[in-house]
Simulated assay, not measured.
Amino acid sequence: MEENNDTAVAEFILLGLSGYPKAQAVMFAVFLVVYLVTLLGNGLMVVLIIVSPLLHTPMYFFLSNLSFLDMFYTTCSVPQMLVNCFAHRPTVSFVGCLAQMYITLFLGIAECFLLAVMAYDRFAAVCSPLHYTLIMSRETLIQLAATSWAFALLLTLIAVVLQSTCFCGHNIINHFTCELQAFLKVACSNTRLNDMLIVANSFFVLIMPFCFILVTYGRIALAVMHIKSAKGQSKAFSTCGSHVLVVTVFYCSAMSMYLHPQGKVSSNRDKMISVFYGAVTPMLNPLIYSLRNKDVKGAFWRLLGGKIPE
């Protein structure tokens, strides 16, 4: 007779790098730098977008949503990873593990939808510049952002309702955090329903938005090819290039995790991939957008009260 989840397991042990003591100090330093840069970069982006009137445009409205999301996304997992680097027996409570897993799942899904919405915004700006302000009105911006967050919440709630795994005392998770795939690997109950849910979610959350983005940027590339001015082409490619880079890094790492056959044993490969889309990508987002954008640089120097460098 199967025990209830709450009585079968009270806490989980997160292996992380416990088997590699010499690497723990190095990984602590790497995680710390990644986390601080993520908080500083994304926090600064949010502040600049709020205080600078020149950044009150649709693209930066969505970027502020993305930066706000990324700060919380990394905060849900990286601080725990830092603590566990030197913990003799890194543990997390059952409730804490579930909370971390579903919050990061919600934020990850929201990021997938926001990246797709940002691609649509760039499509409207490049392919319909004369009607851009009408297409991306204030009401449309709010509706698109709210829909992205609402769909992410809905899909996460479905996962919560259908989660019915039993662990029978198995509480060792070979991961840095309570990540969904690693969490299900320690279950002793039948996880077929959960696996089907992951495949269905991956289709709506990863494949569909990614295909939409590919088609959208294909249309953008065709439109840019018809621009006679070399300067205009360069500006269009520069505007969209940063978004393409973010999309490539995020979706490729996420799809390599969720769209390949899963065994019952977590590998070091899975752990490193999850770190890449869960910690590295949120760090890269503000760096990519700010370093490649004159408007952001100008807003930064105006915030400091200094002269904008040529």
Rank of each mutant, 00 (worst) to 15 (best):
R302T: 14
F94I: 09
A152E: 09
D121T: 11
L222K: 14
F28Y: 12
F28A: 08
T191W: 02
L105R: 10
V296I: 08
I13A: 07
P90D: 01
N42L: 02
L157M: 04
G16F: 13
G43S: 09
G19V: 11
L39I: 02
I288H: 03
L107E: 14
A25M: 06
V280P: 00
F237L: 07
S267C: 01
I49T: 03
I308Y: 14
G305C: 05
K264A: 13
S202G: 14
V78F: 05
Y102M: 05
Q262F: 09
A230H: 15
V296D: 03
S18W: 14
A10K: 13
Q80S: 12
A150M: 14
E3L: 14
F203C: 12
A8M: 00
M208K: 06
I173A: 08
L130A: 15
F94V: 02
L287V: 04
N42Y: 00
F151A: 10
A299E: 02
P309R: 12
N4K: 14
E3K: 00
M225L: 09
C211N: 11
L98I: 06
T177G: 01
T191V: 09
L259Q: 05
K271D: 10
T216Q: 01
I50K: 12
Q181K: 15
V296K: 01
K307M: 04
T75C: 11
C127Y: 10
E179M: 10
S256N: 07
V117H: 00
L259R: 06
T38Y: 01
S266W: 01
N5M: 04
S274E: 02
V215T: 08
K307A: 15
L245S: 10
V30G: 02
T140G: 05
C188A: 10
A254M: 06
A87L: 06
L184G: 12
Y35F: 08
V215E: 04
W149V: 13
Y35I: 07
